[in-house]
Amino acid sequence: MMSRKVAAVLIALCSLTSVAFAGAPYQYTAQQEYQFGDVIWAKSALAHYQDEGINNIVDHIVKDNPDVLRMRSGENDTQRGLQYPYIIPDNESNAHNLPGGIITINQGLVQECLYNKVSSQVHGTGDKTVIYGRSQVANIIAHEMTHWINRDWFRMLEVVEDGEYNGEVVHRSFQDYINRGDWKLLMDNFTAFSRSPEIKALLQQNSKRVEMEADAGAFRLLEHSDIYSPGSLAVYMETRMTSPPPEPGHHNKLNQHPEPLARYNAILDRISEASGGRVRYENHMLYLDGKKFLKTGTMPDTLDGNSTERTLFLAGQLAKAVKYRMGTRTGGGLYFTRGTMDSDGRVALMGKNNMTGQTVMFDLFNVSADNAIALMEGKKPVGVEEEALVAIHDFLKKGV
Rank of each mutant, 00 (worst) to 15 (best):
N139E: 11
M355T: 04
M145W: 02
N366S: 10
N206I: 00
N106T: 11
I40G: 05
Y335D: 07
A391N: 01
E282F: 09
Q107L: 04
N265F: 11
F154V: 12
Y26I: 10
L13Y: 10
L233H: 08
A319W: 10
L202V: 02
I40Y: 06
H257W: 07
F336G: 04
D67P: 13
H257G: 04
P381L: 00
F395C: 01
G339W: 01
L349Q: 07
M145C: 02
N255K: 03
K253F: 09
V130Y: 14
W183R: 03
N366V: 00
D182W: 01
S173E: 07
N283M: 08
G126S: 14
S18V: 09
S135V: 01
F336L: 12
R155Y: 08
A372E: 02
M361R: 10
G37K: 01
R209G: 01
N116D: 12
N206H: 11
T340M: 13
V235Q: 04
K379R: 05
A372T: 00
A388E: 02
T17I: 02
G217E: 02
N166F: 10
E161I: 14
V382D: 04
Y34R: 06
Y165N: 13
A95H: 09
E92C: 10
Q175L: 15
A138W: 00
K380Y: 06
Y86N: 12
A201M: 10
V19P: 09
I105Y: 12
V170W: 08
L312Q: 03
I141T: 00
V360T: 06
Y34L: 07
D188L: 07
D67A: 15
D344W: 06
R134I: 01
M285S: 11
A12N: 13
T340N: 13
L364Q: 07
E273C: 15
V137L: 12
V390R: 00
G249R: 08
D370W: 03
G181Q: 01
F293P: 00
E385H: 04
D269Y: 15
P197N: 05
S275Y: 08
M350Y: 04
E198I: 08
K128T: 14
M326G: 06
Q50P: 03
E168P: 03
G100P: 04
K253D: 12
P244H: 06
P25H: 05
S135W: 03
L254F: 13
G290S: 06
L186H: 04
E377G: 03
V110G: 08
Y236G: 08
L203H: 04
E161G: 14
E282C: 05
V169C: 04
V9H: 06
T242S: 12
Y236V: 05
K352Y: 07
Y49N: 07
G276H: 07
P381S: 02
N265K: 10
K184L: 12
N354D: 10
Q205R: 15
K208Y: 03
P244Q: 03
E259A: 15
Q136L: 04
N255C: 08
T311Y: 00
Y84L: 13
E144S: 00
A388T: 02
V19C: 14
L69M: 06
L46K: 07
Q27S: 09
T146S: 08
V160I: 12
R151F: 13
N255M: 12
M350P: 00
